[in-house]
Design a binder for these strands. Structure first.
Lengths: 187, 187
DNA sequence: ACCAGAATCTAGACACTGACAAGATTGCGT
DNA sequence: ACGCAATCTTGTCAGTGTCTAGATTCTGGT
C-alpha cells in the first residue's frame, strides 16, 4: 500500500494544507512540511501542484465547488441560503479564506473559474427570489451581510456571547435585512 | 542625512510593507527586500520590529488607529459611518486585510489592543443611534453589511459596473439595511 | 567639552524554504 | 512482455528569517 507511489498524494497534500491553514493561517506552513507529513520527499508535491501557489489554487477550486454544493439546496429561500453561506464559511474556514483572497492563488485557473461560476450561479438563483424595487442592489446587500457576518466571525471580531453555533447566531442578524423584504419570508 | 542612522527606518519599513501588501498581498514580500528598498542592511528591521510578525503587528496597530480616526466623525450617523467604513477599507486595503486576519500578527500586543478598543468605541458610538427592537442585533447587522461589502469589493468579487468609487457604490447597498430603521435617517 | 551608555545599524552565520534538474521506480496500455 | 507515461526521489542553488557579535552614532549628565 505504501510503496513508491503514494496512491492519493494530491488529496493528502490538499487535506494537510487545509488543516494547516485552518490551524494557523495561510503563512506559517511550507510545502516541505506538508510533504514530510505525507511521508513523501520534499519535491513530490511539485508534480501535482507545480508550486506553492498551485496548492492554494487547488484549495480555492475545491472551495468554490463545496460552496456551490452548500448553497444550491436553498435556491428558493434567500434567508436560508445566507445561513448556509455563514455555515460553509465556519465549517470550511481555510477554503473560505483562500477563496476570497485572490492574491494567494491564480483566479484565472480553469478549474477555479468553472467552480466559481457554479457558486455564482447558486448565489444568483437565491437572489432571483428578490422582487423588490432594486433586486440587484438588494442582492448585493444580502451577499454583503452574509459575507460580512461570516468574515467577522472567522476573524474573531464578534462578541463571544452571540451563540454557540454560527447558524443560530447568524439567522437573527440576517433577518434584520430580510425581514419584510421577502414576499413569503418567515413570519 | 543618510549616514549610519537612517533617521526614520521604522516608518520607512512600515510604508514599504504597506505598499508591498497593497500591490501583491501579505505573502510575496520579504523583510530583506524591504530592507534593501530602504537602503539598510538585512537585519536592520529586526531592531524595530523583532521579526516578520512584528511588522504586521505594527501595521495592524496603525490600521486600527487610522480606522478609529476615519469612523469617529460620523458617530451620529450610522449610514455615513458605514460608507466611511467601506471608504477606509478601499483607501487602506493593506491595513484592512491585516487587521482582520489575526493569524498574521499578535492581537494581544498592547498597541494593537489600545488602537482596536478605540475603533470598537467608534463603532459602538455609531451603533448607539439605533433605537429599534434589538439594537445589538441591528448593530451587528450594520457592521456585517459594511464589512461584507468592503471585503467583497477588495477581493474583486463584486461586479465591475457598480460604480467608479466604492463610496457611491456602497451607499445604496447600505441603505437597503438602514432604510426605515434609523429614526431621522435619509428620506 | 567630555564621556559612559543607550540606541541604531552592520556583518556573519545557520537552518529552512521554494524551485529546478536529472534520475529512479512503478503502473498501464498495447 | 514491453515501451511509455506518470509518479516519486535525490541533489542542488539562491533566497529568507532569525540569531549573535560587533561597529557606529546619538544622548544626557557632569
Amino acid at each position: 500500500m505504501a510503496g513508491y507511489h503514494h496512491g492519493d498524494l494530491r488529496r493528502t497534500i490538499m487535506s494537510a494544507a487545509v488543516q494547516a491553514i485552518t490551524e494557523s493561517g495561510t503563512a506559517t506552513w511550507s510545502l516541505r512540511e506538508l510533504a514530510r507529513r505525507a511521508g513523501v520527499s520534499h519535491a513530490a508535491p511539485a508534480h501535482h501542484f507545480g508550486d506553492r501557489r498551485g496548492v492554494l489554487t487547488a484549495v480555492a477550486a475545491e472551495g468554490f465547488t463545496l460552496f456551490a454544493d452548500a448553497l444550491s439546496p436553498f435556491h428558493d429561500d434567500l434567508l436560508e441560503m445566507g445561513v448556509a453561506y455563514v455555515r460553509f464559511a465556519t465549517e470550511h474556514p481555510a477554503h473560505f479564506e483562500v477563496m476570497f483572497t485572490p492574491t494567494l492563488y491564480d483566479p484565472a485557473d480553469p478549474e477555479v473559474a468553472a467552480a466559481r461560476s457554479r457558486a455564482d450561479a447558486a448565489l444568483a438563483a437565491g437572489a432571483s427570489t428578490l422582487t423588490g424595487g432594486s433586486p440587484r442592489t438588494d442582492a448585493i446587500a444580502a451577499w454583503s451581510i452574509a459575507h460580512g457576518f461570516a468574515s467577522l466571525w472567522l476573524s474573531g471580531a464578534l462578541p463571544d456571547d452571540l451563540g454557540a453555533t454560527p447558524d443560530t447566531a447568524a439567522r437573527p442578524v440576517l433577518e434584520v435585512l430580510f425581514r419584510g423584504r421577502i414576499p413569503d419570508g418567515p413570519s
